[in-house]
Nucleic acid binder design. Sequence first.
DNA 1: CATCAAACTAAGCGATCGCTCAGTCGCTGA
DNA 2: TCAGCGACTGAGCGATCGCTTAGTTTGATG
Lengths: 201, 201
Amino acid sequence: MATDSPAARRMREAAIAEFAERGYGASSTRDIAARIGLSAAAMYPHYRSKEELLYAISVDGHRGALEALRSADSATDPPLHRLKAVVAAFAHWQAQHTALARVVQYEIRSLTTAHYRHVRQLRQDTTAVLRKILVAGQASGDFDVEPVEGILLAISSLCVDVCRWFPSKTFRQPGQVGALYADLAAKIVGRGAGDTTTPGD
Amino acid sequence: MATDSPAARRMREAAIAEFAERGYGASSTRDIAARIGLSAAAMYPHYRSKEELLYAISVDGHRGALEALRSADSATDPPLHRLKAVVAAFAHWQAQHTALARVVQYEIRSLTTAHYRHVRQLRQDTTAVLRKILVAGQASGDFDVEPVEGILLAISSLCVDVCRWFPSKTFRQPGQVGALYADLAAKIVGRGAGDTTTPGD
DNA sequence: CATCAAACTAAGCGATCGCTCAGTCGCTGA
DNA sequence: TCAGCGACTGAGCGATCGCTTAGTTTGATG
């Protein structure tokens, strides 16, 4: 399907807003189409079904987040610098793309099993970026991250959950969240008093 | 309405399972009733509407979590001990009541504005339990939690998000999560090497 | 200008939604 | 014993759901 045409893109944007606001199950294809002034049937030249629209959004979102993490990382930097950069980028992305992130995080249960499997792979790729850094830091002695999988889970969880509450009364700018979370991650891995510079913010 | 009768309770349990699995908007009153072998109309002697059923569940859940935090706290203990106890209880509750917690955290958008306001108060009460401890620890010099609202948000967020991923491959028991998160909270407030005992696990 | 493909609409399909209503059933207190 | 009441059912209301179909419009291509 031609999911890269301007109309298809606008449909996705409308659907992101609708899905984030009401949830996939409570959103109607009529309301989504109406947001951009089209009739209910206008979706079907671009997406085979409502679920395929969700799938396209979900893949887009997961790829975007993964790309944000990867481009924030630089394997030659010291572990703490890498960790802070990647955590800041992750939290920043979730805050920057709140609506999309909510769809990405909360609506995956509505995907077909085949589509879910693809998306799950992208999620694992994302986690892997952080895991590599933690393992490297543990090996070099820069981090104290035992148990690694637990710390990894917690740091990921922290970043992912940003999309649930952002923006708050005290946090309105994605950069604020990125900076705070980079510092928190540093504290968690046992180097709170170390490098206090946060790349990317 | 007689929302404390055995039938009403069973309806809530069925609805929790359904709402957690599919989301409020995608759940039907027929499917909920069918879970306990009743007809679609059997809900209405107990709840005026589907939304009131969600509201009853939401209030129940928020009260339960709040009570778990409060009964884990003891104002005479040292701040670090209090923090670890309350964080452990919070994370433990989210893990123990995954389905209920998901409804509580993700479906509040489907409440009427009046019902939402009530529930929001309960949420603020819950946050207040943690805030008191952080402020006390900051005042006594036990904690380094600047900015307080940021640290508070992060610790709360960490606990709340447990319901999204629990159980995972490496974390199957609520006590595990409680213990890990108590240690993380201690590291975050700047006393990772201090008291290593975690009450309540 | 004629042709064709793709985007889009109006209408409507069958299914399902939340909810109502008339009536049945079984329990309870006088 | 029996009137009354609340829980519950089966049928069904009007509305809305995802999606299909037939037909119109538009813009690019020969």
